[in-house]
Amino acid sequence: MRTREIIAFFALIALILLAKYVLPHPMQFSPTLSLIIIILLSLTFIIIGVLTLQGKFVERRIVFIYVGAALTLPFFMQIELEVPISPEVQSAYDQIESLNPGSKILAAFDYDPPSAPELQPMADAFMKYCFHKGIKVIIMGLWPQGPQQAGQSVEAAFEDDPALRDKIRYGVDYVNLGFQSGNEFVILRMGESFKAMFPADIYGTPYDSIPILRNVKNYSNIDYCMNFSAGKPGTQEWVQGAVDRFGLKLSAGNTAVQAPMIYPYLQAGQLDGLMGGMAGAAEFEKLTGYKDKATTFIKSQSFAHIVVIVFIIIGNMAFLRGKTERKVK
């Protein structure tokens, strides 16, 4: 290892120790300090822009530092951002809001921990809303870790309102059927019989012994479906296999990578509502009234997006500058 790297390594260790044992916990910047930081960063953008126009291109890895700063610094800033509600998230919320207490909703958790930063906040808000409204939730997953993420949502709901622990009963108000492999074939088979795919719940309790599943044979016996999806199998398979084939009513929460591919289904009316990525999660949290991580993270997200936009502009300035120079030569 070179000297520079050894120094960097020990500097990192020192920073970690400083953060852990010296800095105040939790750490918060005052509004004045936050404003000063934002102004200073903006000035550096202007400097970089000017240098670029002069043909003095900066090291491209500086983008990593700026994105890192844009994502990290808002954690400590006391900023409130207004989250406008998009029609597709409003539509998803309206569908759930229209359900009566006692209605049964099938919640398909089709994601794993790597996608949790985007999907867990919307899943948490969904679960809290259903429990408070008295909507019964039937949980299942086409991804192995999906049901355990659902368990985290249930736990989050109980931590948010400890009174729910006594009020909400497993097997009566919600059930976790667990994971079943088979992807879209599971969806198709559930159209005839849930029990065929889930003979017991995640704890091994037989299907017929679970009160909430009494009279639930297939999709025609549930009132709505909510899907949280990070890829395949996911929303696309639910639309193709359950909505178009069995007439299931469905709204979905997707990672931002997947959302553009799902919009055609929303536009065609195959999907009632769609929550896309962190922004969709923040909007849903606002609508349900359970503001949590997504609402906090959206600040950092917004700043990071501004940084990306600025660097796209600077990058295009560099490109046009280079093109002009080549023409002159």
Binding site: V67, L71, F76, S115, P117, E118, K293, H305
Partner: peptide, 23 residues
């Protein structure tokens, strides 16, 4: 890009929240 930022945020939340306890 939004998705990748969100994933990074999840990690930063872990680092600054669960690990360093600065947030």
């Amino acid at each position: 890009v939004m998705s990748r930022m969100s994933l990074m945020l999840g990690r930063l939340d872990f680092l600054f929240g669960d690990w360093l306890r600065l947030i």
